[in-house]
Amino acid sequence: MVKQSIFGRIATLAKANINTMLDKAEDPQKMLDQMVRDYTNSISEAEAAVAQTIGNLRMIQDDYNEDLDASKSWGQKALAASSKADQFRTAGDTASADKFDNLAKVAIERQMDSEKSAKAAEPTIASQTEIVDKLKDGLDKMNDKRRQLVSKRDELTARAKSAQAQSAVHDAVKSIDIMDPSSEVNRFEEKVRREEARVRGQNELSASSLDAQFESLEDLGEQTEVEARLAALKAGGTQSLTAGNATDTGENELDYSEGATTQSN
């Protein structure tokens, strides 16, 4: 039971895979074209069969008509022979009269045979006519079905092509959808943004470097000015100190000289 179950599942799986492959490989237009061809071939075979049946019916009808014509002809001959026999009998020629009466009888027998043959053919003709009518009706229905199938094929083919075109347009639109994160445009935009961010970072880095250089220059300028002022201060301070000392010495000297004068006085 287990083996049978496993084999059954394997067989089912194989059939499913084969059917899936066939479904993928099927081309609706080709399949419908093949259906139309197969149905057209079936109609051709049916037409040949119907044509043969009609031909047989026409042969039977021809034989029937020939029997009717023969019956009519033999009836006319029987009437002519009987009339001739009456003429000879009226004329007193009994032998000739009997002869023509016998001919009339033969004609009547032939007439009866033709009538029997025609009568026997009537049921066959009726049944064959009914069969032919049914076959013609069935053939007409097959032709109608074929026209419907062709129309349906054209409709489905057009719908399949329209669906394929819509799918192609959808894929094309989707491939350039800028709102789709997976689109190529979005990927390129992200790449450009990254590059712009990198350049902006470089600019900021360069700007900070320049600011640092200018700041160092300003610091250097300040230091230079400090040094210059210090030098100037030193230079100016020595002269002022010297000038101040000289003044103070002179005054002291004056003071001293006046004091000395006063003292001397």
Rank of each mutant, 00 (worst) to 15 (best):
A160E: 14
E184I: 09
K119S: 10
M31H: 15
H170L: 09
T242H: 07
I108V: 10
N56I: 13
G201N: 00
Y256Q: 14
A107G: 15
D63M: 09
L241W: 08
Q29P: 02
G201C: 01
Q263Y: 15
D62N: 11
D33Y: 02
G259L: 11
H170E: 12
N265W: 11
S42H: 10
S240G: 14
E47F: 00
K134C: 03
E195R: 00
M21P: 03
V132L: 07
R146L: 13
T242Q: 09
A165V: 13
A163N: 13
D144W: 00
N245R: 13
E225W: 04
R153Q: 02
D171Q: 08
R229W: 12
A91S: 13
T247H: 12
S83Y: 09
G201S: 00
D133C: 00
M21V: 09
S96I: 04
E66H: 07
G8K: 03
D177L: 09
E189G: 09
R146Q: 11
I131W: 07
S82G: 14
V132Q: 02
D211E: 06
N19H: 02
S167L: 03
K134F: 07
L22M: 03
N102Y: 06
A165L: 12
D69V: 14
S182P: 05
A85M: 02
A14D: 11
A232R: 15
S216W: 03
T238D: 11
A260T: 13
V2G: 04
A172M: 04
A197D: 00
A49P: 02
E122R: 09
S183Q: 10
N245Y: 15
T129E: 06
T94P: 02
I6V: 10
A78Q: 01
E47I: 01
S83P: 06
V132T: 14
N265Y: 10
A160V: 15
S73Q: 13
A91M: 11
